[in-house]
Amino acid sequence: MAQIELRDVGLSYFTLMQETEALRDINLTVEQGEFISVVGPSGCGKSTLLSLVSGMHKPTKGRVEIDGREVAGNSPKVGYMLQHDHLFEWRDVLGNVTVGAEIRRMDRKKAEGKALELLERYGLGGFAHHNPSQLSGGMRQRVALIRTLVTEPDIMLLDEPFSALDYQTRLTLADEIHGIIKDQGKTAILVTHDISEAISMADRVMVMSRRPSTISTVYDIRFEEGTGLSPWRKREAARYNQYFNAIWRELEGHVVFAR
């Protein structure tokens, strides 16, 4: 059984004057442990797709399911990581990574134990009682990821989580966060404008069309060098440029068609 399934999903926005169709006939199946990247023209509804999976939006047509059950409201099985870390400056790192658990009324001691374990495991053990202002941008995003992991979601939704970082930090953090998500056995959907990021992090790359947006192509990312490559190593792989050029040409076609 697929962990995530969207069947004939459509979404429209309504005003007193008109209907605006954002998504049309979206069909997608994501297996447990899979990493999917989503790219498409600006404004095509990539982040809206994540909102449907998370339960923040309800489709006007079709059905969204997690583990065979229709999504109805925010699901505890889903964790969200945004572009900005949204850390509270008046709380230390440990206080920040347990805030989601507090909101969900999880056992406090269990949540703190899980938080300290994850901080130690992923190189932040010595920063549990530091303030967020004492951390680099990459460290802050790792804290944001650990905050999400403490709530023990099965699915990670990543909405351009590296776009606010400088390029070098972005490359390094992509490697780190990809490794953490795979290590934790999570299913992930990443929305990004960066084709390189999409290819290097994903098992499959999904290209969305202009509005009303649908899935135009899905690329299975396979390298002759084998499985288990880090995002950095994938960028050096022989087929990387083939994938990049194919996705670039397709996106350029959607943009030109829309003009």
Rank of each mutant, 00 (worst) to 15 (best):
H178K: 08
M206N: 00
R204L: 08
G228K: 05
L135S: 01
I177C: 07
R233D: 04
M156D: 06
F14I: 11
E19H: 12
T227H: 02
S75W: 11
I181R: 00
L145E: 04
A101N: 03
R7A: 13
A188Y: 15
F127Q: 04
E21V: 03
H193G: 04
T15W: 01
N96T: 11
G113W: 14
D203L: 08
H193L: 07
Y167A: 15
R204F: 07
M17P: 12
N131F: 11
H193W: 08
N131Y: 14
A188F: 15
K186D: 13
A144S: 14
A202H: 05
R222N: 13
E19Q: 11
R249A: 12
G55L: 00
T172D: 11
E31M: 06
S230H: 05
S42N: 05
L229F: 00
D166R: 10
L28S: 09
I155S: 00
P231T: 10
R204P: 07
L50P: 02
Q32D: 09
R249Q: 10
L28R: 08
L23K: 11
R259K: 09
F223Q: 04
A188M: 15
L251Y: 02
P161H: 07
R259H: 06
T192C: 15
K46H: 01
G137M: 00
F223G: 01
R140L: 05
T192A: 15
A198L: 09
G138Q: 09
I155N: 02
V255L: 07
E65K: 03
V191Y: 10
K186I: 13
M56I: 14
L50V: 03
V30R: 08
I4F: 05
D203G: 10
A72Q: 15
S75C: 14
G62Q: 08
K110W: 14
I36V: 04
G138V: 12
H86F: 13
Y240S: 11
E252M: 12
I247P: 08
A115P: 00
E160F: 11
P153R: 04
P231F: 05
A72L: 12
A258V: 01
M201C: 05
K58H: 14
L145T: 04
Q134C: 07
L251K: 04
K46M: 05
I103R: 14
V97A: 09
I180Q: 12
E117V: 10
K110S: 13
G123D: 08
V64E: 05
N245I: 08
I4M: 09
D67R: 13
G125D: 11
L52H: 11
G62R: 09
L119A: 01
R210H: 12
G10Y: 04
R235T: 06
G43C: 05
G55D: 01
E250M: 06
V30D: 09
Q3V: 15
L157V: 06
T20R: 12
R170D: 03
L118H: 03
I215Q: 09
R142K: 04
D92Y: 10
R170Y: 03
D25M: 00
Q242A: 13
M56A: 11
S47W: 05
E65G: 02
D220H: 11
I146V: 02
E70Q: 14
Y219N: 10
G138E: 06
S200T: 02
A22D: 01
M17T: 15
Y219S: 11
